[in-house]
Write a protein that binds this DNA or RNA. Structure first.
Lengths: 126, 126
DNA sequence: GCTTATCGATTACAGATGTAATAGTTTGTG
DNA sequence: CACAAACTATTACATCTGTAATCGATAAGC
């Protein structure tokens, strides 16, 4: 699968939230968040199809688009490559950077604690 | 500052590890890790200078290059934009994804716990 | 049925990127 | 001092990306 560009990702996000969707539905969903012309969105949809990240089926005149690439798969793959590229594969320094610059909220901490607890629960039999 | 491309980042990493450095030192540092031609590395150095991420001072025939953009600044900025783009700004889901796919090691957990402890220490006076 | 509005497909085009090659300039060497 | 070696600067070029416009097919209205 070819890389998804940033603009393409915005289109994909719409489909992750609601699919299948017609091109026009995607255009409308993006209308407030972006200033993209309808033609631009359709080009992006097309490129996503070419890249294999999105599929469609014909529904009369219009197409119904659906994501092939799942959000969780995308997130995991991008996270890994990002952390590899920017932090040499270590995740803690990323979180540390956020902590140091006051980008962590109470909620984030709570979630992380829960996560860690669960991890330790599952890995207690080491 | 214009965006740093992935290839440019590799060059920048070398300078973060050791600077100032001549172009040839950078080329050599990259020789094993990559298959880049010397000319390619020099182009990348040049682009980094144009982008303002790297500076140089003349040392006779050769230049001595140094990073202007600091690694921690780069990491923080990229992390924020990545997490915004891919996880709508929430960091815990990223870590959760890693946990779910067994990408977290004992050491990561230990570091995260320490981080959290420190955060709570500093934010105890809420 | 013919025309027009609407879709997707194709084409456009400038800037960024990956990956070098060539040109121009400075310097060390004979 | 002239020439060659070594640097950097400039140029090259294909692909990707952002951002559309135009083309061609088709369906819907009159």
């Amino acid at each position: 699968m070819k890389d998804i560009s940033q603009a393409e990702l915005e289109v994909l996000k719409v489909l992750w939230q609601h699919s299948p969707a017609t091109a026009n539905q995607v255009v409308e969903a993006l209308a407030d968040a972006s200033q993209w012309h309808e033609k631009t969105v359709k080009t992006l949809l097309n490129r996503l199809v070419t890249k294999g990240a999105v599929s469609f089926e014909k529904d009369g005149r219009a197409y119904l688009y659906s994501p092939v690439l799942q959000q969780s798969d995308y997130q995991l793959k991008e996270s890994q490559s990002f952390i590899q590229r920017v932090f040499s594969g270590r995740i803690a320094p990323l979180v540390a950077g956020f902590a140091q610059h006051d980008k962590l909220a109470e909620q984030d901490i709570a979630e992380l604690k829960q996560l860690i607890a669960r991890w330790e629960q599952e890995n207690k039999n080491d």
